[in-house]
Every structure is written in structure tokens, then in C-alpha cells.
Design a protein around this nucleic acid. Sequence first.
RNA 1: GCGAAUGUAGCUCAGUUGGUUAGAGCGUCUGGUUGUGGUCCAGAAGGCCGUGGGUUCAAGUCCCAUCAUUCGCCCCA
Length: 416
Amino acid sequence: MEENMKLSTQPYKGTRDFYPEDMRVRNWMFAVIRRVCESYGYEEYDAPVLEPVDLYLSKTSEEIVNEQSYSFTDRGDRKVIMRPEMTPSVSRMVAARRQELGYPLRLYNIANFFRYERPQKGRLREFWQLNADIFGVGGIEADVEIIKLADSIMKALDANPEMYEIRINSKLLLDKRIKESGPKMQLKQVMRLIDGFEKIDKAEFKNKLADAVERPEDLYEFLVYDGDTEEIKEIKNRCEKSGISVKSKYSLARGFDYYTDIVFEVFDKNPQNNRSLFGGGRYDGLVGNFGVEPVPTVGFGMGDVTLLNFLNSNNLVPKLGPATDVAMLLIGEVNEKAQPFADELRRLGINVAIDYEDRKIDKKIKSAVKNNIRFALFVGPDEISQGIFTLKDLESGKETKDNIENTAKTIRLSRN
RNA sequence: GCGAAUGUAGCUCAGUUGGUUAGAGCGUCUGGUUGUGGUCCAGAAGGCCGUGGGUUCAAGUCCCAUCAUUCGCCCCA
């Protein structure tokens, strides 16, 4: 490397470094999510970051695969892609063991995904996402369960119902209504147009709709209808019986091509951030693509970038401290003699970081404070010979003098 | 891929109609004698004004290009 070339400290475009304070937030968020998923009987799985391109062709959105993916040809001339989403991978896994898996099969995964896009608010090139899916239930119970799971996660993250709303639609119904109004182009394209309904003004939308179908008035009326159709009524009632309020939204289409029936999304109600947070739906056709008997499936994906925006803007991220409980500050040449005391604390379940540096004690305290460590323990020759140590609570400034066992107890009590 | 805004110290930002040694707050470092942080006091370090070109006697300031960041569009988590 050139000597005068300064390496950039910035992470690659659209990716993030996770310093410990960021990692704590991510871990907290996913720990909550993981707990809720497991409480509903979902089991964790994983798949490779690299997949053959074929896995996504004509299943995912075409734009994502063709223009928004990290893909390359490997040394063996295979076309490879860094996974832009999880659904095709999990469908492959289920198809591979179609016969021996037990249904209903509930699976979840938390992993990173890659899309080659222009980064902006709520959207990066690498993001983390929960995927939760239930396989083998064709009935409405599974749709309701998945929506309920999504809602439970929001509640477990302390979101209250004023902050978000759940919108549902049936792609089957939407398909039918498009066909009835005489489509002049591919169904997919009409879907795209409809999905953007809320973003453009009504006159413009009507114009575009007129280009797309023969009878745009009928379709338009359906899209803005805010009552309940027969198709939506049942699932809506069932959701409400389970304590979840959902809203019908007939213009909701979702971006992926594989959805076959119910689709839903969780929408941020904050006017500052009026956007879909995440969503999912039923995709009964994917597993069957692998040449096995089809398996009805419904699931959703929940990305960390939009979710984190939501949590931050609603002040829902708790204060999170480091894993380290105590900084052991050595005074003088006592390292070897201090080690057994550190080990004893560790044996008692305390996380101990030792500051060996030969510098003034106030500098050591400052370092501990900078790292957000709650306690400092002073260990010099006198303490070692007497077995009594001064523990300082760096939050309150209070000091206690005690033996190792009681010191550990004090630290443990402070945790709650 | 298209459009817009912004790049000055580690961070947040000032910097007048172009004018001499480039500013603040916060942070960092040192000191205010012995083994105790946050407050206070004194001092210090730290900038190729994103990068390259142009206009000018003179550019942080004006023009062009380029890169980066952010925000829209497309698409989506």
C-alpha cells in the first residue's frame, strides 16, 4: 500500500459499524423479538449468505434481482448473489425436507441482507431482518397468527397502538378486481401502480389508472373503499377477537411478486415518518416451485433500519449499559497478586475488566466512566494484604469497603 | 438509474459585499504534589476550509468538474 494514502475510516456505503453501544441496541431489539417468536412456538434456523441467482428469478421482485443485488460469477462460472431477502431460501429448505418436516412448521430467522440501492432514510445496503413464517396451514388461522405475532412484537417493544396501525388486503381480491376492470397491461404492472397510490396525487393517479385498465372508475372506487368486503371481513373479525385491530386497505399490494392472498403491513402513524415499517403475507406457491407438493405458507419480514427509526422517534430504546460490571484499578505493581481476586469475582458471576496501565488513578477512573462501567474497584498492596477492597459506584459516587464476596453481592444487587 | 441540499478542528457549527497569522462551544491532553472521575481554575495540542482545475493582484468565500454524506424519486425492510 502507498505510504501517503490515507485509508478512510468510513464503513462501505450503506453499511454500518456497530460499536458496543450500537450493538447493545441491536442485541436488545433482537432479544425481544426472539423471545416473542419463541413464545409462539417458532424455531430458529439459518441459511447461507450466498445463494444461486436462479433461486430468486421470477419469484422476488425483478428489480431487486436485476438491479438491486450484489451478484457475481464465481471461479466455477456459477452466478452467485448475496441474499437480498430470506423467503426463497427458507422455501428451498422446507422443500428439501418436504416429507420429513412436521406441520404446522414455524420458523424464524434473524440475519443480514444486502441490496444495492441508494441509501437514504430507513434504507441501507446492508440491513438486518427478522423473518417469521408458518408452513403447512392453508386456513385463515395462520394468517391471523402471523399478524398477531407481528403485533405482539410491537407490543413487546413497548409500542402502543396509537403509534402504528396494521393494514390488510387480499391480493386475490385485488387481482380479481383488476381483471374485472379490463387490464391493458400486465397484472404485475397494474399492481405496482396501485401500490404507489398513496404517494402520488389523485388526479395523476387517475390518469395513470386510465392508461392501465379499461374501466378505471370502478377500480378507483374499490381502491378508496374503506369498508369491509366479504373477503376481508372474516380475517378482520378474527383479528379483532384476538385483540388486534386491523384496517382494510385495498390499495395495499406489497412489492414481492410471490404473494398469493392476504398481505399486510404495519404502518407508522407518526406524520413525521409516514411509511410502512414492515409487512408480509401469504405465499402458497413458493415451496412448490422446487418440484415438490406445494406447502401453504404465510410469513413476514421485519427490518432493523425502519424499526430502529420507529423506536428512536418514539423513545422506546432503553438505556443500555455495558456487559462489564466493574473496572479493577490496580495501584502499584500488584498485577499477579490481584489476579486471584479478579478470578474470584468472575466465579461469583461478576464481569471484571482489569486496568493494568501504570498511570494516575484519576485517569483510570475517567477511562472506566468513558466506557460506562458502573463500578471501580481499587486494588493496591494494602487491599491485597487485608482482603478488603474499596468499591466505588461511579454513578452515585458512593464507596463501600468489603471483602470480595460482599463486593460481588453489592454489584449484583445494583443490576436489577 | 433520476433529482436536490450539504462538505471549515475529534464532534456541533460561525466565518460579513472575495482582503493579510482560520474562529467558538463541546471534547482531548497537561498542570493545580502523596491512592479517587464529574465542578472550578490555568495552559496546550489539534485545520491542505472534501479533492482537482479555473477566474482574480488576492479564494474558506465566485465558477466548473469530481468524490463523499444526507434527503427525495424508483424500489423496498
